[in-house]
Each structure stands twice: as C-alpha cells, then as structure tokens.
Amino acid sequence: MEFKEVRELLEALCSADGTSGQENCAADTAEKLLAEFMPVSRDALGSVMGRKGEGKGIILDAHIDQIGLVVTGINENGFIKVAKVGGADIRVLTAAQVTIHGKKDIFGVITSVPPHLADEKDEGKALPFDKITIDAGMSKAELAEIVTPGDRITFNGPFDSLMGSRIVSPCVDDRAGVAAILRCLQLLKDKNTCPIEVMFSCQEETGGSGAAAGSFSTLSDEAIATDVSFASAPGVSKEKYRSLGDGALIGFAPSLDYEMSRKLTAIAKERGIKAAPEIMGGSTGTNCDDIQIARGGIKTALISIPIRNMHTAVEVADLSDIEETAKLMAAYIEERSKEYA
C-alpha cells in the first residue's frame, strides 16, 4: 500500500474526535503516538507537549483540535440548539450526520427541509444558522439525561480512500499536520538530531490560544508549524492556489522568517523533495501568528498541506503531500542539527 505509514497515522488520528476546548480524545491518541519518540506532557490548556534532548533546538507544531458545534440548549420538541466551534460552514450543515459527545456519544442528524415543503424564495440560500438544530430521535426529557449545554458535536464521515493516494475524512484539518510531524519523527528515529520540541496545540480553530500558551513553555528560537491550506478545485483558482499532489507548500509571508523559508526551499531542491511556494500577504491565519510573537519572539516557518473542501466533513488530501511535508521537516532538522552540534 502506498504511503502506508502516513495512512495509518492519519486514520488513527482522524478516528478520534477533538473539537476546540475538548480535544481530549484526539489529544490522547496523539500523545500515545508521540510518546514512542519522546517524553510527553499535557499543558494547562490541554496541548500535547513533547521534548527530545536538552536545550534549544527546533519546535514542530500542528494543531490537534477540529471545528465542530457546541450544544446551547434543547427545545420543547427535543431538538438540540447549537453554536459554532470554529468556522463551521453553514452551507454544508443541513442533512449532516453528527455525534453528540454527551454523557455518552449519541448519533444525530442536522435537520433539513425536504423539497416538497421548501419555500421557493429560500432557494439557493443556506438555512440561517438560528434554524440549525439536531435531531437525536429523543424527547427533551430523554435528552436532558444525556446532553448538557457545552457538550461538543462533531461531524461524522468515513475515512475513505479515493483514487490514487487521495483520502477523504472530516478532520484532515489538521490531523494531516499532526501525522506529518509523527511521520517526520519516524524518519529521524535512528538519527542524532538537535533537541526537538513538539506541540500538538489545542484551540487553533477558536483563535490560537493553545499555540500562544504552548510556545511560551518552549525553549527554542525557531519553529516550523504545519497546517492545511487550500488546494485548487472548481472555484478555487489553479493560478493562485497549488494542487493536490504538489507536495509540501513552503510559506512565504511578511510574518514568516524569510531565511527559514529560503532554507526549506533550498533543502527541498537539494534532496529532491516535492515542494512549492505558498505566498501570503500578511500574517498566515495559522498557529505561526501566535508562535512568532511568543516570549521574546520565535523565528517561524510554515509548511502547508493542500486540501480541498476545508471545514467540511469531506476534506480531501493526498497522502503524498503529507509524506513530502514530513520528509522536508526531517531534512531541515538534519541540516540544522549540524549547526546546533
């Protein structure tokens, strides 16, 4: 099977839920996988922190949380009212299948209007968010035994293999990044490297608190964050965005460390790692923005994995891009280790 290691890591990570602020399940899975390489701990906000070696080295970051919904109440007829956790896309909510993480996990369907009853004037418009409710097939009283305001809701969806090395799953953003870091550590397993600090940060989707707090506790002066980015697709310009299969996308942005970006580019070229530049005009909208200004400042680079349909239950990625991202991070650490020695 192609990209067996990455596939196994990603499938394990995607099968564990973890909306922002309630990352426990995904964080447990990631922590267990990370513990094979280094001692691990959990910080006050819930980020998974790992450290290999003493002193300064390189920080690797990916966020462990995913978008979802949160229970705000139950109406008289037993339908669950919700708010967004992160940027859930209103256009894909109706008829979605979900899991409500109450006292136990229960199944639910987001309500929708059948065409027989639809109002013509609403055609082409997503149902407004205040009309979004979840049908769990229970009465208010039955639900109250299981579900409490604050309980998180995740989108269900299979981890399916598409053609070639492409896969689809609901939380590729950013389990793909977590998988890339774990794969990078596999590649470096028997090698002598500089110290490596790993953060699987919580709460990226709700504003980056996890990365801000997490990087305060690190020691190193440089960091590479890996997150997902937009892949070209119908409506997403091929000229502006890279395609699935283009490899590791090396970020160039005013807020990113220019030397690191250039070094990553040079290493990719030298080692024959598939990569392409991704240019942004300001800050990056990723954990990099918080890591960069943590403590007295940390030099930060971003490597992105292109995906389609971001923030839906059908995020599509190419395993080859995750593998290339892992290879590029590993190569960078190998090269920099010579200078830390």
């Binding site: 940027g87 896309d89 209103i90 256009r91 894909v92 598409l162 689809v168 937009f230 697709a233 119908p234 409506g235 997403v236 909208g285 389609r308 349909n309 971001m310 923030h311 839906t312 059908v314 599509v316």
Partner: peptide, 9 residues
C-alpha cells in the same frame, strides 16, 4: 464527495 469552495475564500 461533493466538494465546495472553502468558506474562507
């Protein structure tokens, strides 16, 4: 899957 242009764009 039925894809869609990401909400961010």
């Amino acid at each position: 899957v039925l894809g869609i242009k990401p909400i961010h764009l």
